[in-house]
Structures are given as structure tokens and as C-alpha cells.
Write a protein that binds this DNA or RNA. Structure first.
Length: 352
DNA sequence: ATGCATGAGTC
DNA sequence: ACTCATGCATA
């Protein structure tokens, strides 16, 4: 999408000194060395039976009872319909978008979809405000990647250590310390949660970021230098998702003030420009990388069909599906989880 | 940019 | 066993 980005992958990232204790164990399990086994014979047809078998009692139990062999295609078509209903009114083309990618859109005026999480992020709006304050910002150190300030001496090393630490940002973000529950948050809740505003900000952010010549990965790392309480580094993935609005509404709201703070500071530093290049840390080759399993197209199509009919299959169902598709149960389970998550993502930009 | 995965917190 | 925020690996 945007060329200026150099795309450095692997956003390792260190935890800000005063951050939270790493609660991550470098578990590098050999996840799934076994990449899916594409099965030549279209067992897909059989899958149909699986679908109409023992669907959890929830809803459409025998709705598909008639569905039989050779009807997967039918099922998929059906799936499309269902998914359309699920994701609400889709102004778009009536075409099958088995790729439930975008989804959730709420009327701009409408209430945010799942702000249900009561404790989810309080507004860190204040943090952002603080940062914007000229006084406090003077204490900032290295936000901009340029002068990169590799914190004193830490070296990012290998796979295993990278993600130690920040995981809880989410938590931190989600549960801001009580003392952070600032009244300021209540002052402009609308501006902060309005999808429109978020969308506009994401766009502005991207533009200005690019203007600064900073990559998404750079921003992620620089965030840790913005010693905001409970804020550590983030990955390129997350920054990318923020810019493309592919995060949950809540997540977008939580991240906005932080990224805004970084942006302000980075631009400020860009003005006084200084700093000297710092030698990049060395990568301690060696660690084994995690292998990513990829589900072959045929299997994926089946999964999508199942999903359309029943987004939340029971454990047994999952086991059955996994067997049918010759995939590990866990892979299937995770696939469904991710699929559900996708369904909830934002991405209202393209839907008006 | 996105697919598959992890882990904390919940229910 | 799920949701959510997030990340590594990869297309």
C-alpha cells in the first residue's frame, strides 16, 4: 500500500524499563511443523455431512438436515447468505465474500459494537494530553527512530526474547491504573470514540509518519521510549493494523492516544533534529523460528463453509472437522477463534 | 498486509 | 474453552 515503508519485519521490542514484569515465557514450541496436508481427493463433499450432523443444539440444528453429499457448494452458497446476515446489512455486492475480512460496521452515529468490556481501556486520553504538554514533552528522549536511542545497552536478541514483556500492554491498556482514570477522559469521549475520528486520525497518522520517514516497525519500537506508564513497544503488525483500521474498536480507541503522543513528540524532535545513528544490535543467530502452518485452499474453503453455518462449533465438532480435513484440532480451533475475531474487526472505512 | 498463534483474563 | 490484544512469520 504505501511504498515508503521499508518494512522491517520482526518487531522484537524491548520492554520499557519501568514497564511490567515480563509475564511471558519464551515458549517456543514447535507449533505445527506439519503444514496442512492438502488432500487431493475432494473430501470436501463429505464435509457437508459433517455440517449437518450434530450441530450444537444452539440454533439451526437440522436446518441443514437435508444437506447431503455433494452439497458443499450449496452449503457454501448458504454460508454466504448467513454470513451476510450475521455481519449485518452489507451494502456491498451480493457476492460471496467467503473471506470474512471486513465486517463490522456500525452506523457512524450508532453505538459502538462491543464496548461491552466494562474495564476495557479507560481513556488514556490523558496520557496523550500529558504528552502533548510542552512541559512534559521536554523530558522525552528518543521517540523518533532517526536518532534512535537504542536504550542504553539493550540488545534485541533472538526469537525467544523478543516478545517477552510487553504482552500485557493489552492488559495495561485495558485496565488503566485507577489513578489514570482521569476526568479528562470524560471530557471528550465522543471525539475519542467516534469511528469517524478514529478513521481520520489513522489516516493522518499514516501520512505524517511517512513524512517523518519512519516505518511502522520504527514506530512500534519508539513507543517504548515514550515512557508512558504501561506503554511499551508494539509490533509492526499492530501499527499496520491501526493504520488500516483492522483492529477492534476498543483497541483502536486505546491505541489512539498513545500513537498520537508519539506522533507529536516525533515531529517535535524532527524539528530540533539531532541524535547520531546508533549501531543496530546484532542478531544472535541461532534460535529456531516458529513455523507458521498454512491451511490449504480446499481445507480453508471447507472451514469457511462450516463457519458460515456454525461459527462456534463445539469441541467435538471441532475434533470432527479437524479429522475430516486432516488438520490438527488445535489448528482448527484457533482458526475459528481467529475467524470470529476477524468478524468483529473494524474496517468501517470501506463500508459507507 | 495478513495468516496462524500465544497468553492473560473471563465466564 | 472463549475473547481480546498482540506478535512472529510469511506472502
Amino acid at each position: 500500500m504505501y511504498s515508503p515503508d521499508k518494512m522491517k519485519s520482526g518487531g522484537g521490542l524491548m520492554a520499557p524499563p519501568g514497564c511490567f514484569p515480563a509475564r511471558y515465557s519464551p515458549t517456543y514450541r514447535t507449533s505445527d511443523p506439519r503444514r496442512c496436508v492438502p488432500n487431493p481427493s475432494s473430501r470436501i463433499l463429505e464435509d457437508a455431512s459433517l455440517m449437518c450432523n450434530s450441530w450444537s443444539p444452539r440454533h439451526n440444528g437440522d436446518l441443514f438436515g437435508g444437506l447431503n453429499d455433494g452439497l458443499l457448494s450449496r452449503a457454501e452458497a448458504l454460508a454466504v447468505d448467513i454470513s451476510k446476515h450475521q455481519s449485518g446489512p452489507q451494502p456491498g455486492p451480493p457476492l460471496p465474500q467467503l473471506k470474512h475480512d471486513m465486517v463490522y460496521h456500525h452506523g457512524v452515529g450508532g453505538p459502538p459494537p462491543h464496548n461491552a468490556r466494562p474495564h476495557q481501556m479507560g481513556h488514556h486520553g490523558m496520557e496523550g494530553l500529558d504528552m502533548l504538554d510542552p512541559l512534559s514533552s521536554s523530558s522525552m528522549t528518543t521517540l523518533a527512530p532517526m536518532g534512535e536511542a537504542a536504550p542504553p545497552h539493550h540488545q534485541l536478541h533472538g526469537y525467544g526474547m523478543n516478545h517477552v514483556m510487553n504482552h500485557h500492554h493489552a492488559g495495561a491498556l485495558a485496565h488503566p491504573p485507577a489513578h489514570l482514570a482521569h476526568p479528562a477522559a470524560a471530557l471528550h469521549p465522543d471525539t475519542d470514540t467516534d469511528p469517524r475520528e478514529l478513521e481520520a486520525f489513522a489516516e493522518r497518522f499514516k501520512q505524517r509518519r511517512i513524512k517523518l520517514g519512519v516505518t511502522q516497525a520504527d514506530v512500534g519500537k519508539a513507543l517504548a521510549n515514550l515512557k508512558l506508564p504501561g506503554v511499551g513497544a508494539l509490533s509492526q503488525s499492530t501499527i499496520c493494523r491501526f493504520e488500516s483500521l483492522t483492529l477492534s474498536h476498543n483497541n483502536m480507541i486505546a491505541l489512539k492516544p498513545i500513537l498520537q503522543a508519539w506522533l507529536e513528540e516525533a515531529e517535535a524532535q524532527a524539528k530540533n533534529k539531532r541524535r547520531d545513528p546508533d549501531a543496530p544490535s546484532v542478531l544472535p543467530a541461532g534460535e529456531k523460528k516458529r513455523k507458521r502452518t498454512s491451511i490449504a485452499a480446499p481445507e480453508k474453503r471447507s472451514l469457511e463453509a462450516y463457519f458460515a453455518v456454525q461459527p462456534r462449533p463445539s469441541g467435538e465438532k471441532i475434533t470432527a472437522i479437524a479429522e475430516k480435513l486432516d488438520l490438527k484440532k488445535n489448528v482448527v480451533r484457533v482458526w475459528f477463534c481467529n475467524q470470529r475475531q476477524k468478524q468483529k474487526r473494524m474496517k468501517f472505512a470501506a463500508q459507507h
